[in-house]
Simulated scan of single mutants.
Amino acid sequence: MSNQVDFRFQFSTDSPYILLVKYLSPKNKTLSFPRQNMIIWAIAAFWYPIACKWLGGFSQSDLKSKARTAIYQLQQQIIYLAHTFNLEQELGTHGIVTNPTSTPEQFNGSNASPRTPQPTVSDIDTESLPSLSNNHDDDRLLENAFN
């Protein structure tokens, strides 16, 4: 008997997301990250704290900590997308991109005075984002957010 849980998801061929399914297919050998990580990171960054709340058995403090961590992970995904598509200045102008050097510990509730992430309201260029200076660092941005 296996200790694994299988998860299967199908789209119809006319779905607007069929390209995503093809991209994440095991046949695609050019993925930046392991396929399983890409899928779980995308799902967990938003839905994990909500699933924990639904399941019950977690304290309000634990749920808030999980939500803060998820917010941090989502921010790292935003930064990754902004850098990948050269949108740092556009998103920064709208206060969407946050400081990429923040860590979840800075606002995960484990400190005496947890801080919420503060959006950057000025334009952002790649020089002000040293952690995004090359593709290898881009990869670490997401990996570190989920480890």
Rank of each mutant, 00 (worst) to 15 (best):
N99L: 03
L63S: 05
K66F: 13
D125A: 00
F58A: 03
A145I: 03
D62S: 11
I96N: 00
H83W: 04
E88H: 07
S110P: 03
A51F: 11
F85N: 06
S102F: 09
E127L: 12
R115S: 14
H83K: 10
Q4R: 15
T98E: 02
T30K: 13
F107G: 06
S102Y: 10
I79D: 00
I79N: 00
D125Q: 02
A112H: 09
Y23S: 06
C52M: 12
R68L: 05
F107K: 01
Y17N: 11
A145E: 01
N134K: 06
N37C: 05
N111S: 15
S131C: 09
L142V: 10
F46T: 10
T93Q: 11
R115V: 11
S133V: 07
L87T: 00
N144V: 05
N86G: 04
F107D: 02
T98P: 00
F46V: 11
N135S: 11
A51L: 11
S113P: 05
D14W: 12
H94N: 10
L20C: 09
N86A: 08
L19I: 12
P119W: 04
L31K: 10
I18F: 08
D125C: 03
I78T: 08
L63D: 01
S2P: 13
L55I: 09
F146C: 04
N37V: 01
Q36S: 08
L132G: 02
P119F: 03
S2D: 15
N135C: 06
I39G: 00
F107L: 06
P16H: 07
P104D: 07
G95W: 04
F46D: 10
L81W: 12
E143Q: 14
E88L: 15
K22L: 13
Q76E: 13
Y80I: 02
H83I: 03
S65P: 02
S131N: 09
T98Q: 09
K53W: 02
S2R: 10
L87A: 04
A44V: 04
A70E: 01
L141A: 07
Y72Q: 02
G109R: 03
N135L: 12
I50T: 12
D137P: 00
A82F: 00
N3D: 15
D62A: 12
N28Y: 08
Q73P: 02
S128I: 01
T84V: 06
P130A: 05
F107Y: 13
W41T: 02
D62K: 06
K22V: 09
L87Y: 01
L63M: 06
G92E: 01
Y72H: 15
I39H: 03
S113E: 14
N144M: 08
T30V: 14
Y17M: 14
P114I: 05
I79F: 01
I71P: 00
S110V: 13
K64R: 14
A42Q: 09
E90C: 01
T120K: 05
N144F: 08
L81C: 13
D14N: 15
Q73V: 04
P100H: 05
L19Q: 15
F85H: 10
F9T: 08
